[in-house]
Design a protein around this nucleic acid. Structure first.
Length: 358
DNA sequence: AAAGCGTGGCG
DNA sequence: TCGCCAAGCTT
């Protein structure tokens, strides 16, 4: 226990913080599709879990249409468990971190195998694929009313400011956890967690916190110090390399050749164009998958988490059949192939070139 | 336990 | 413009 949270406990303001935050939440909670609407039934574990997985490292705005689409197409965990994994991957295309989609299906199937009910506590949830410490705590608190200490980037930011925790992340994790535990209420822990999220997305933003709108400003040591935006302190990040690579548009009779990437690793399990072997650690070889009269068709820039890629698009019209597994996909329907954004950009480029030719 | 893993928005 | 950042998990 660090000095600041000890002080809070000693002064008894920990419960005051929770009360003020919950009062603020009752007044200002965002209306989100995965939350209970006034007068409507509670969302239920399936929708809570689905939303939490989609929201991992992903903004509310990006998640919203995907959540609507998934819940309309697969209304229950049993329906999702019965779905074809490839179709789920395609439906996830564009949302990123595709291991989440694979784990989503695996998790749904485990839940379906236990009769369709999620474990109702943190420890049980934590054992399911794709559910880590954060998601287990969030689902336990929000869907099952458990007292759980829910810690995400919002909570880390709010708590590090509230208590002016100067140790850099990730080292400060344990201190942040103790402080978050100290202010988490026994009742309404789920609302408390969501209130922290709303606080982090509203008043207590990363860049320019609006302390005048914050219900906790009177309790905030970071603000009292004069510069709350300096929290949380973070360790410096490594520079990311820029890699060069190619991908190959092979067209025959109005269809383009698509492959499926290996199940693990970059864009794992997703449909893709053949490429020349580029990856985070190395440029591509430049070698096309088959010989022919290849034409350069421009390049796309794309940033990944740990490297940037300059991807050159090469095109070929042929009557040959590429070696290996793949499928001919109608060019006119390429928008429905479920391509991850990198290759969707390449497809857009290819289509724009065709327009110019015509 | 540090590194791999997407994407889009924002100041 | 571009670096930073987001309701993290896995190995």
């Amino acid at each position: 226990m660090d000095a600041s949270s000890t002080t809070v406990l000693a002064t008894g303001s920990a419960t005051g913080i929770a009360r003020r935050l919950l009062d603020w939440y009752d007044e200002h909670a965002r209306d989100l599709p995965w939350r209970a609407r006034p007068g409507a039934a509670a969302p239920g574990p399936y929708r809570v879990w689905l939303s939490e997985v989609m929201l991992q490292q992903t903004t509310v705005q990006a998640v919203r249409p995907y959540f609507e689409h998934f819940t309309a197409r697969w209304p229950t965990v049993e329906a999702l468990a019965a779905a074809d994994e490839g179709e789920v991957m395609a439906a996830w295309a564009g949302l990123g971190y595709y291991a989440r989609a694979r784990n989503l299906v695996a998790c749904a199937r485990e839940v379906a195998a236990r009769g369709g009910s999620f474990p109702d506590n943190e420890d049980g949830l934590r054992k399911l694929p794709g559910i880590g410490a954060y998601t287990a705590a969030a689902v336990a608190a929000i869907a099952f009313g458990r007292r759980a200490v829910v810690i995400d980037a919002n909570v880390e930011r709010v708590v590090s400011r509230l208590f002016a925790i100067s140790d850099p992340l990730p080292g400060a994790r344990s201190a942040i956890r103790e402080a978050a535990d100290a202010i988490t209420p026994d009742e309404r822990a789920g609302d408390f967690a969501q209130a922290m999220m709303d606080l982090g997305s509203g008043p207590c933003t990363a860049r320019d916190p609006a302390c005048l709108l914050c219900p906790l400003s009177q309790h905030c040591a970071g603000r009292a110090e004069g510069d709350p935006a300096r929290f949380p302190v973070k360790a410096p990040k490594r520079a990311k390399p820029v890699r060069q690579g190619r991908c190959f548009w092979i067209e025959r009779d109005g269809a383009v050749w698509l492959v499926r990437r290996p199940g693990k690793g970059m864009l794992g399990g997703m449909r893709a164009f053949p490429d020349d072997g580029w990856h985070a650690g190395e440029d591509g070889s430049g070698e096309p998958p088959l010989p022919g009269d290849w034409q350069p068709a421009g390049r796309v820039q794309h940033g990944f988490t740990h490297f940037a890629l300059e991807l050159a698009l090469m095109t070929l019209h042929t009557r040959a059949q590429p070696e290996g597994d793949g499928e001919w996909w109608p060019v006119a329907d390429i928008g429905n192939a479920g391509l991850p954004t990198l290759f969707a950009k390449a497809a857009r480029l290819a289509l724009s070139q065709r327009e110019e030719m015509a």
